[in-house]
Nucleic acid binder design. Sequence first.
DNA 1: AATTGCTCCAACCGCAAAATG
DNA 2: TCATTTTGCGGTTGGAGCAAT
Length: 326
Amino acid sequence: MGRSPCCDENGLKKGPWTPEEDQKLVQHIQAHGHGSWRALPKLAGLNRCGKSCRLRWTNYLRPDIKRGKFSQEEEQTILSLHSILGNKWSAIAKHLHGRTDNEIKNFWNTHLKKKLIQMGFDPMTHRPRTDFFAALPQLLALVKLRELVDQQPWADHSARLQAEAAQAAKLQYLQQLLQSATVSPAATTSTSDLDQPMSLLGSPHMASFPSSLMPSPTTTTATLFQNMSQIPDIQIPCSFDFDDQEPMGNEGNCGSDNYSEPYGQGENSTPRTVLLSQSSLPPLTDISISNPGDACSTSSCGGSSTAPISWPDQLLLDDFMAEFSN
DNA sequence: AATTGCTCCAACCGCAAAATG
DNA sequence: TCATTTTGCGGTTGGAGCAAT
């Protein structure tokens, strides 16, 4: 298997290609095909290594290459495929005629990745971000907002933070369940795995959820994104008795009206990810840990370098589920 | 006008799979 | 079957171009 000696060979030119070199390469390939890339430079009269020639041809000079901005459709395709394939750029490129893996990779790294991060998603897993510290500003914003709403000082700030975190974790659990059903058609998620989020979706709290957003086995993150604009302000019961941390009734509803949207404000081009990430849903925990049914369904699962944070069991178990399914 | 910081992308690097002898 | 060579892939980098100060 050894490594191929390449551009480090003596005297071979590196760096940007000149128009003359491009012309030589194109003319040679048009006349003879590329044949052996290793032999090509000599035959074409180029002082380059074969690898460099191949790269130049496949990424730039090939006649069928499509240049210019990525269309909305292409963007969606990349998102979809990336949620399934991960960083398999060449595989993704096969579905985008005229686009090279390098171009797609660059587009991902400079645009789509940032976009996802901005929207609160982990670009590797296509799930809400799981690192606590990334969510801290949102959490603090929640606390401040809650203070404004309640108009009364809190006796114990740490208890308050904990309570808000618990509340946010609950909400995020719901969103995780939704997402776990949407990630990939190739996912290993079983029908029974889908039951849980589906039953939640059937709950009164989700009555206003548009059917087009209901996850199906063929739904992807990308299609979900496409439909984001249809998401209404969902009223989720999130009142909480912070003294004993037991759920209260629904009278003190703190739905989206009471919360700011930390992401995407004033960004016309960015779909609202209200339900799934930005409306007061700080990504606090990797729920898949506590959800055995969610069998790590994407190929990139585990690509996230952030270690999951363990949350108290009380946040994640039956009582919690019961609250949503009521 | 000069400097700084940022974005973008072409090209390189190194690894591993596939092909070849 | 094994060693070697070639090809393909994904991660990373360097520098050009642009905007802000």
